[in-house]
Design a protein around this nucleic acid. Structure first.
Lengths: 210, 210
DNA sequence: ACCTGAACACCGTTCAAGT
DNA sequence: ACCTGAACACCGTTCAAGT
């Protein structure tokens, strides 16, 4: 009757799968036990309690996001590629990343990317405090962007939506093109790339004209 | 024995106070009932269930943040002042704003600020799609920033911290000033103002040299 | 119209007892 | 060393019954 030996890794794997598929709320100790075919209390022996189980999942995610391969011919291109890779990785694991955010470990998760950015900032000729400011500006930009995007995507269908709100906005009566533009949905992918490119160029411009 | 008539507003007030003081996790139906001096089930008559109670609290917060007074002599200054006011309002009600975020209503909450930004963009001479891009860029910047800041602040004391990590980072061996700058804590207040100012100037520059 | 207690189906966690 | 069921103290919610 007894199933084969339970291991900490098996617990973590099953828990991660549960979170990836159904979100963190679906990860109850009882459901996890059912999925594993063990008693609820066995889980406690392997991972302590629910809180440290979540900690372990978050740790895994943080290490998973540690692989960064900058691409491109110039330092600027490579910095943009790092930013885009960071954004992509984050968006692939929404639930797990949300848990990383909740635990305030976003910074830690970005350390490898930060290192890559330092390397490219140096290659572009930035030094000292200027290089530090550039690295942090890009990091804040990316993290902030992803958080905003997640936010927007989780937003339920709203009534009235942005569209209706801006269609009959009196303050834009003299500028129908503006009203139209604000009523249209945001292309966040394009806006992200544009913003990062502009930011990086702005930051690197300092290196050429000190 | 029976207390004076319970009202929906009283329920919301007490719930809001509970969230402001002890965070959303402290808002259980039983604790709220105890605070109000009623039976748990009475609350259900007034607000439906816990979910719609939270919805109502979030609605309140969204309207509370609707007051925006731009200050400054130039459109650029006034746009920066709007951004700073948005940030301040958000940071004054961390728990309630977090609930707004969770419900994906951040955009809605920013509509009044968006209107103010549209006004100033117009005053600065921006029109049509350029104005829309400027408004959205500022909005994304502010929201993203506040989210990142909250994230950083909730982060528990980490070991090793950023400081230790960058002190002995080999990649910065040739640039001790950079290592020093990255090891130092970020002055997010200053970085915010600098970033917004630079962004706004960059966006308005387009109006003068089309 | 408003309030109530009892009951239901869930939680996470502890613990003494098994092997 | 590992697993178990029973029990505890919590949840949110429903509902029939009161006034």
């Amino acid at each position: 009757m007894a199933r084969s030996a339970l291991s900490r890794d098996e617990v973590l794997d099953t828990a991660a799968a549960l979170v990836k598929e159904h979100g963190p709320a679906a990860l109850t100790m009882r459901r996890l036990a059912a999925e594993l075919g063990t008693a609820v209390t066995s889980i406690y022996w392997h991972v302590g309690n629910r809180e440290s189980l979540l900690d372990a999942l978050v740790d895994r995610t943080v290490t998973d996001l540690g692989t960064i391969r900058p691409r491109g011919a110039t330092p600027a291109e490579r910095m943009v590629s790092v930013a885009r890779a960071m954004r992509r990785s984050l968006r692939e694991r929404p639930h797990l990343v949300a848990m990383v955010h909740e635990r305030g470990l976003t910074e830690r998760m970005f350390l490898p990317a930060q290192r890559a950015l330092v390397h490219e900032a140096h290659a572009a000729g930035l030094r000292g405090a200027d290089a530090a400011r550039a690295v942090r500006a890009v990091q804040f930009q990316v993290v902030g962007y992803v958080l905003v995007e997640r936010n927007r995507e989780r937003s339920p269908a709203q009534s009235p939506g942005e569209e209706e709100l801006w269609r009959e906005e009196p303050s834009t009566g003299s500028d129908p093109v503006l009203a139209e533009a604000l009523a249209a949905p945001v292309d966040t992918e394009a806006l992200f790339t544009e913003s990062v490119r502009a930011l990086v160029e702005g930051l690197l411009a300092g290196a050429r004209t000190p």
